[in-house]
Every structure is written in C-alpha cells, then in structure tokens.
Amino acid sequence: MRRASLPLAGLLLVSGLGVPAPALAQRDPAALELIEQLRPRTRGIRLPAPADATPPAAPVAPAAVPSPDLPATPSPGFPPQTPAPGASAGKPEAAPPVASVAPGTTAPAGVAAVSITVTFPSGSAMLTPQAEATLAPLGRALSSPDLAPYRFRIEGHTDSVGDATSNQRLSERRAEAVRGYLVAKHGVAPGRLEAIGLGETRLLVPTPDGWDEPRNRRVQVINLDD
C-alpha cells in the first residue's frame, strides 16, 4: 500500500527521521519555553464564565440623599462621581498590572521578546553547528501552531569590541543569517520574519568601549503583533 507523503516544509529532520515540527515542539521543553516567552502579552486577563452561569443583574443606583453640606444636584457639566466597585472613598483605584520588560532583553516594556546568545566566528556571519543547535528550539517554536499567526523581528546585536560602523554591518548580516536559517531549516514563512541589525547600540550588559562581553553578542526576537 502506498503511504501518503507529508509536505516537506512541515517536516523537521531529526536523526534522519522526518518528524512534524509542530508536534515536536509540543514535547520539547526548550521550544515550549520560547513559545511562552513569545506569546503576546495581555493586560487584565479575564477568565471565561461557566456556560451555565447566570449573568449578574444590572446594579441599581441608590436613591440620592440630600446632604446639608453638599448640593442635592451636581454642578452643570459635571456628572456625579461614583466610586469604582471595591474602592474605598478617598482612595485612588488601583492601576491594572502592566507587564515588565522581558527578562534578559532590551525590548520595550510589555512586549513579548527573548534574547538568544548565538555563537559566530569572530567577525563572521556564518552560523556554526553550535549556533544552529542553539537556534533549533527557536525554529521549532516559531513553526508551532501557537506562534504561527504572528510576525517577528530578528534583531542582531554585538558587543562593544571594534568600531561602531563595523559592528552595525556585522549585526545586520548575522540577523539575516538567522532569518535564513529559520526559513530554510524550519519552514518559517519569510513574510513572518523581519531582520535588522542594531550593532552595539543596545547593549544588554552595559560595558565600556572595547569590552568583550558574550551576553551582548546575541539575537533578540520580538513579537511584532504584541
């Protein structure tokens, strides 16, 4: 019996065997961790109500009671102020929680992002086998159904060794190399990935010029749809 073939783009070759990349990500702890870090951040998560739940009745405003010190009706153009539910009189309402900067990144606050230290030969944009092994979980995460609807920016960053102009060009080439790897090896659609270089302009670890800091030689991935 002839077996149906799977699309080549949906396979990730592991030890010579074709394994669907999305299925692999579901049992890969490293990929799952990246999926969680790159999911869009939400503010004020609201849990869904049970299907059989009865919607609460609309609140009824209490009758206004005249006060000897205050007028019974508000001044024209200013509606009456009603304290928020659960708020005490005279106390400001608590602000909703805001997501902080993603740990280990220089991304804006509240944006889903991750930084990955990638090994390149000195002054080169060629990915080493070690670099590809480091990027493999990212490829499985980006090709998973969890992140398939989103677009991402691949940022190249360098340390402060060398002149700024050379580092800028090098970071651009390295970002493009990572993007090419994700497209060619993991089937991520090219239109979902944007590659830019930022050189030494956004150091993860602040250092003086000429300082060799491996943590600054990194690739940062940012969710553009967050």
Rank of each mutant, 00 (worst) to 15 (best):
R3W: 13
R3V: 05
R3M: 13
L8A: 11
A9F: 02
L11K: 08
L12W: 00
V14L: 06
G16S: 12
L17C: 10
A21G: 10
P22M: 04
A30P: 11
A30C: 04
E33M: 04
L34V: 10
E36C: 01
Q37N: 12
P40L: 04
T42G: 03
T42L: 14
G44I: 03
R46G: 03
P48F: 06
A49W: 04
A49P: 04
A51E: 13
A53W: 15
A53C: 08
P55W: 01
A58I: 06
V60C: 05
V60R: 12
V60W: 00
P68D: 10
T73M: 07
S75W: 08
F78D: 06
T82N: 01
P83N: 12
P83T: 12
P85E: 03
A89P: 14
G90I: 06
K91H: 06
K91E: 01
K91R: 09
P92C: 05
E93A: 09
E93S: 05
P96E: 01
V98Q: 03
S100T: 14
S100N: 05
T105W: 00
A107C: 09
P108N: 07
G110R: 08
A112K: 03
A113I: 08
V114S: 03
V114I: 10
S115T: 03
V118P: 14
T119E: 08
S124Q: 13
M126Y: 00
T128K: 09
Q130M: 06
A131S: 11
T134C: 01
L135T: 04
L142C: 03
L142I: 07
L142N: 06
S143W: 07
S144P: 12
S144G: 09
L147R: 11
Y150Q: 03
R151Y: 12
I154Y: 15
I154L: 14
I154A: 05
S160P: 09
V161S: 07
A164P: 13
A164Y: 09
A164E: 15
A164C: 02
T165F: 08
R169L: 01
A175Q: 08
E176H: 02
Y181N: 00
Y181T: 00
L182G: 01
G187K: 13
G187H: 04
G187Y: 04
P190Q: 04
G197E: 02
G197L: 00
G199I: 15
G199N: 12
E200C: 03
T201L: 06
L203V: 06
P206W: 15
P208W: 06
D209A: 04
G210T: 11
G210M: 11
E213W: 09
N216E: 05
N216W: 00
R217F: 01
V219S: 13
D225R: 00
D225L: 01
